[in-house]
Nucleic acid binder design. Sequence first.
DNA 1: ACAAAAGTGTTCGATATACACCCATGT
DNA 2: ACATGGGTGTATATCGAACACTTTTGT
Lengths: 226, 226
Amino acid sequence: MGEDVGKDLSNFAKPYVTVDMVIFTIASSELKVLLVKRKVQPFKDKWVIPGGFVNIDQSLREAAMSKLAEKTGVKDVYLEQLYTFGDPKRDPRGRVITVSYFALISSEHIALKSSEEYNATWHSFTKLPPLAFDHKEIIDYAFKRLKWKFEYTTVAFSLLPKKFTMSQLQELYEIVFGTSFDKRNFRKKILSLKILEEQEVMRNVSFRPPQLYSLKANLGEIVNIL
Amino acid sequence: MGEDVGKDLSNFAKPYVTVDMVIFTIASSELKVLLVKRKVQPFKDKWVIPGGFVNIDQSLREAAMSKLAEKTGVKDVYLEQLYTFGDPKRDPRGRVITVSYFALISSEHIALKSSEEYNATWHSFTKLPPLAFDHKEIIDYAFKRLKWKFEYTTVAFSLLPKKFTMSQLQELYEIVFGTSFDKRNFRKKILSLKILEEQEVMRNVSFRPPQLYSLKANLGEIVNIL
DNA sequence: ACAAAAGTGTTCGATATACACCCATGT
DNA sequence: ACATGGGTGTATATCGAACACTTTTGT
């Protein structure tokens, strides 16, 4: 950093920068958040969302991706930057700014590996334990964003397996919004968007076999759903 | 930072953290962005959006507010965090992560002080000069957010004087969306939201004097406009 | 009187909501 | 045959879009 690139920056105090991730999934008809129990002070034995320091040569997204892989073993997920929290007192160890992300993992992926192997456990969003730092605030922010994204985009599909039934999709929306919808109107609405492709019909179920659908491949993200 | 607060953090490399602001206003029926010309390398003589390093004891929002006051002398503005840009190569001087903000300044405020006193000038959004770093990307991101906020919230009013006419409001929406609206439908829509209060009628104009309106005081931000 | 911008209503199509019964399968 | 969840249509209300003329003031 010599004269040729201009004034150097060495006299500015630097904060630490972390990424922290709110990872959602759906299991047992509930919205779940992945949490890790802290083993060290400060906030020993409290729960936190997964995260860690950003390597000096890593982009923020790469940092988030690597924390995610570390805790879940999963790579194919929806990942979006949320908000950056930078209150000078948010971490008692010093100035730590955290860039938060939110991630959605499909229920078909979480079954693949026990999340306990990764020292992380799923908690029902409605019954969260006490959280360290400002992580409750981060999760609340993430949930607002999740709801919003459900209304206006196709992110919902990243919480479902590749092939899913209309009822699964509807149940997902009902869990996230905490309300119930009329089956006929819901189906009508979704089909009118023309974002689904019919797949085969489900087999070996002891009731009328449901149609399976998949999301069309070539869609951009924002589609103005519901 | 002793044992009592746990493992200290001193062996993690720290990036620099800055805030950068996209400041919008409306003047001469155009959307304007405030830019500063760089006087030092790198990118000497290129334009940048206002910003600077975050003090170690300042919250991110405080840092943004103080940069804003520095460049515009204005305090009563809409200010919102946008996105955090952290590509390791975005600044040739080293690892610099920037938390971007966007701000809306009412046209009544920008007339108060010449922005040139503050070493910053307004540029038409449609004719931006070449920008340093990734600042073009930041501005584009801010503009997307601006449009979105115009659709779903009452932020538009922070670009107008306290009292304004329906035509001023409509013109503002037309500038931001780059389209024109039907006067009757626009008025109907806005009035149906019941977010305005009638003020006095404008005086001394050589045409039918328009009704002045103001935004009701007690509104939360999101109102689902248009 | 005229120039300039403000203000005003109705029709039509599209979209959203409310609502209840039959269907296909496995056991 | 029955239990289970899947699938379907119609009527009504609401909202958004299109569209052109009259009003009020200052000069």
